[in-house]
């Protein structure tokens, strides 16, 4: 938790939100203006209003994160990995050119033989290297802390794959078929864990967290790290946890217990 001072709410959304906002309004105005050319005046206003209705609904500081209890995670269980693959339409086959949004990792202390098994995914860093290196702004961090690839902008340069110290990004090198409607993905773009962003927005748990609970292991916890009353924030304040490679200063949003 030595990244605490770098991970304040003020750094977490405000500055990110301001810049693109005016750009966004400009885009919307453009859409409205085009509708205006083709329509009677009354209808023009209506069309623009409809677009502007789509506003994001941030209430208070939000940073979504995970707490993974490696003590509760079972060696050999891959319920979270399967759930992610099923939900997001990824292949079960661990082939070298198949995308991997979440994977099970086993670590062993060579001196003592102590072994732990736990899932790794995009750590949704506050200062992710992927965002820093991306030449197009495709890798970006949402105001709520979820790091995504905007595939409309991604040019497939793979800088982020190289930069991410957690190996969280994959490159889609083949034509993709049978995508899930909620998880568009296609050849020539980078991708990684989305924290099941559309499930989160609908008030559901990410698929991996839900699957872990269903499997009865309860090793994964999801919530708003910045809401002091949320279960995850309470737990983080009570028990010793760590983030992986905290020394890199990227302030991951995924916390681990028992490693």
């Amino acid at each position: 938790m030595n990244d605490k001072e770098r991970d304040e709410p003020s750094r977490d959304g405000a500055e990110i939100e301001e810049g693109p906002d005016s750009v966004r309004r400009g885009l919307l105005k453009m859409a409205g203006a085009v509708a205006a050319l083709t329509l009677a005046p009354g209808v023009t206003v209506f069309a623009r209003d409809l677009v502007l209705k789509g506003q994001h609904k941030a209430k208070g500081p939000v940073r979504y994160g995970l707490l993974i209890d490696a003590r509760a995670c079972k060696t050999g269980c891959d319920a979270c990995v399967r759930a992610c693959q099923d939900y997001n339409g990824l292949s079960h086959d661990p082939g070298p050119d198949n995308a991997q949004w979440i994977r099970k990792v086993t670590i062993t202390d060579e001196k003592t033989g102590f072994t732990r098994s736990f899932p790794m995914m995009c750590q949704h860093c506050a200062h992710g290297a992927c965002v820093d290196v991306c030449p197009t702004g495709a890798s970006f961090r949402r105001p709520d802390g979820i790091v995504l690839v905007d595939k409309h902008r991604c040019i497939g340069c793979r800088y982020c794959l190289m930069a991410c110290p957690y190996k969280a990004r994959s490159f889609v090198g083949r034509v993709v078929k049978d995508q899930r409607p909620w998880a568009p993905r296609g050849k020539g773009t980078a991708e990684g864990c989305t924290m099941c962003v559309e499930r989160v927005e609908a008030g559901k748990l990410p698929a991996c967290v839900a699957a872990c609970q269903k499997a009865g292991h309860k090793a994964m916890m999801f919530g708003n790290l910045h809401d002091p009353k949320s279960a995850i924030a309470v737990r983080l304040s009570e028990v010793a946890t760590t983030t992986i490679r905290a020394d890199l200063g990227m302030a991951p949003g995924v916390h681990y217990r028992g490693i």
Partner: peptide, 18 residues
Amino acid sequence: MLLRSVREEIVRHDARDT
């Protein structure tokens, strides 16, 4: 044009209710 501006909204600004 609608899809193009709305995709920014949805992907980058969390506006899935459009």
